[in-house]
Computed example of a mutant assay.
Amino acid sequence: MSPQTRKERERAERHQRIIDTARELAESQGWEAVTVRRLAERIEYSQPVLYSHFAGKSAIVTAVALQGIADLATVLHQGHEEAASPADALYRVARAYLDFAAANPARYEAMFMMNVDLVWGLDAPQPLIDAFAELEAMFRPFVDEADLGARTEVAWSAMHGLATLDSHGRLRPELRERRLEILVAEWLASVGVESA
């Protein structure tokens, strides 16, 4: 391995270690506990080393969010892969989304509730495009292309609302499954399909 290749690999490993440590700290103590100083202490790098990777906390949170969105896209894709039918895909993808949000509260907060440096829409980074494409794929069998984007955004908003209210303890845990069943039944009814 050339010295240049080794340095690049070490830099990439440091970069990932900063992201992982920020996520772990946020998961255990909340995002307000994540500061460049605390990260530097925790991973035993100087603050200038952290600043050589990230401009500040916002850039670190953005990196955590972007990796979280890539992981979410993978989970949503798996939901599609496991589905027996388009209607089953609605359920499985929504379940995957809500489960991901519940299992990764700090990442979910970074992804969708914090002010991060991510561009949404047509110029979005590839992980955002991929995740949204997985959500669109839920409705593609049921609606025409002209209605696909808006329907997907409404569905995403509903899932986000459930995930957010659930994570803040505003919804009754014993009704989690029933809420998902009702949500999917409403989606199917809105496209003229009866739920099973």
Results as ranks from 00 to 15, higher is better:
S85A: 12
A101N: 03
G56P: 07
L66N: 07
L66G: 10
Q47W: 02
I60E: 12
G56N: 10
A70I: 04
Y91M: 05
I60M: 15
L90A: 09
V64S: 11
A55G: 15
G68S: 10
A59W: 01
V49S: 13
Y51E: 06
Y51F: 14
A96S: 14
A101P: 10
E82G: 12
R95S: 09
A55I: 03
G56D: 15
Y97N: 03
A73Q: 05
H53F: 01
D88V: 00
A65G: 11
F54C: 09
E82Q: 15
A83D: 13
A65Q: 06
A70D: 15
S58G: 15
A55V: 04
A55D: 14
A63M: 10
A89D: 10
L66M: 13
P86Q: 09
A83N: 11
Y97H: 14
V64F: 02
Y51Q: 08
A59K: 04
Q67E: 15
A101M: 07
I60T: 00
D88S: 03
G79N: 05
A59N: 10
H53R: 05
H80A: 11
Y97R: 05
A84C: 07
Y51M: 07
A87S: 14
D99N: 12
A73M: 13
Q78M: 10
V49A: 15
L66T: 03
G68D: 11
P48N: 09
V64A: 12
H77I: 02
A96D: 02
A87V: 01
K57P: 05
A55F: 08
H53W: 05
V61Y: 03
F54M: 07
T74F: 04
G68P: 12
S52L: 07
Y97S: 04
Q47P: 06
V64T: 02
A55C: 05
K57E: 13
D99R: 10
Q67Y: 02
A63Y: 04
T62L: 13
A87Y: 02
V61F: 03
V75W: 02
Q67H: 03
G68Q: 06
A59P: 07
S85Q: 09
L90P: 07
A63R: 00
A84V: 12
Y97I: 02
A55Y: 04
A89F: 10
F54Q: 11
G79A: 05
V64W: 03
A65P: 06
L72M: 12
A70W: 03
F54G: 05
A73S: 13
H77V: 02
I60C: 13
L76R: 01
F54N: 06
S85H: 06
I60P: 03
D71I: 01
S58Y: 00
A83E: 08
I69F: 02
G56T: 08
L50S: 05
Q78Y: 12
Y91F: 15
P48R: 13
G79M: 07
E81Y: 04
A83G: 07
L90W: 06
Y97T: 00
I69P: 01
A55E: 14
P48E: 11
E81M: 06
